[in-house]
Simulated scan of single mutants.
Amino acid sequence: MLKKHLLPFAPLVGFAILPSAHAVEPYQDNRWYVAPFATFINSGGDRRASDGWGGGVGVGKIIDEHFNVELKGFYQGFGGSNGPWDLVGGSADLQYYLFRDKFSPYAVVGLGGMNTCASANCGIGFIGEAGVGASYEVNDHLLIRSDVRYRYNNNFNAQVQPGTDEFHDMTVNLGVVIPFGDKPKYAAKTDTRAAPAPFAVAPKPDCSTLDSDGDGVNDCLDKCPGTIKGAIVDAKGCAVRLILKGQHFKYDSAELSLNAKELLDGVAKDLIAFPQKNDIQVQGHASSEGSDSYNMKLSQRRAHAVVDYLKMKGVTNKLSAQGYGETQPIADNETEAGKAENRRVELIWIE
Rank of each mutant, 00 (worst) to 15 (best):
F37C: 01
D29S: 08
E25W: 15
N30E: 10
G55F: 01
D46E: 14
F37Q: 00
A16K: 03
R31D: 14
P26E: 15
L18R: 04
P36A: 02
Y33H: 11
D29V: 05
S43D: 07
W53N: 05
A49F: 00
N42D: 15
P36Q: 03
T39K: 04
R48C: 04
G54K: 00
D29G: 07
Q28M: 10
V34Q: 00
Y33N: 07
S43E: 05
T39L: 04
W32A: 12
I17P: 04
A38C: 09
R48W: 06
G44K: 06
A21L: 11
V24D: 15
G44F: 07
P26R: 13
G45K: 12
A35E: 08
G45C: 07
Q28N: 11
F40V: 13
S43W: 07
A23T: 11
S50T: 12
G55P: 02
L18N: 04
E25N: 14
P19V: 03
D51L: 09
G54Q: 01
R31Y: 15
A38I: 11
A23E: 08
Y27G: 03
T39V: 11
W32T: 08
A38N: 08
F15R: 04
D51N: 14
V24I: 14
I17D: 05
A35W: 03
G45P: 10
F15I: 12
G55Y: 00
W32Y: 14
A35H: 08
P36E: 00
H22D: 12
A16T: 07
A23S: 15
N30D: 10
W53L: 09
N30I: 02
P19F: 03
R47L: 15
V13A: 11
A23I: 06
A16I: 06
A35D: 08
F15M: 12
G44E: 04
G52P: 01
T39W: 02
N30G: 05
P36C: 03
E25G: 15
Y33A: 06
P36V: 01
D51E: 13
S50W: 04
P36M: 01
N42L: 12
G54V: 02
V24W: 14
F15G: 09
V34R: 00
N30W: 02
N30K: 09
L18P: 01
G55I: 02
S20P: 01
S20M: 01
F15A: 15
W53Y: 12
P19G: 03
W53V: 09
G52C: 02
G45T: 12
G14L: 14
G52L: 00
F40S: 09
R31C: 13
T39R: 05
A35Q: 10
D46N: 13
R31G: 13
P36H: 01
S50Y: 06
I17H: 07
P19S: 04
Y27L: 07
T39S: 08
I41Q: 06
G55E: 02
P26A: 14
G52W: 01
I17V: 15
S43V: 11
P26D: 13
V24S: 15
G14M: 10
R31N: 14
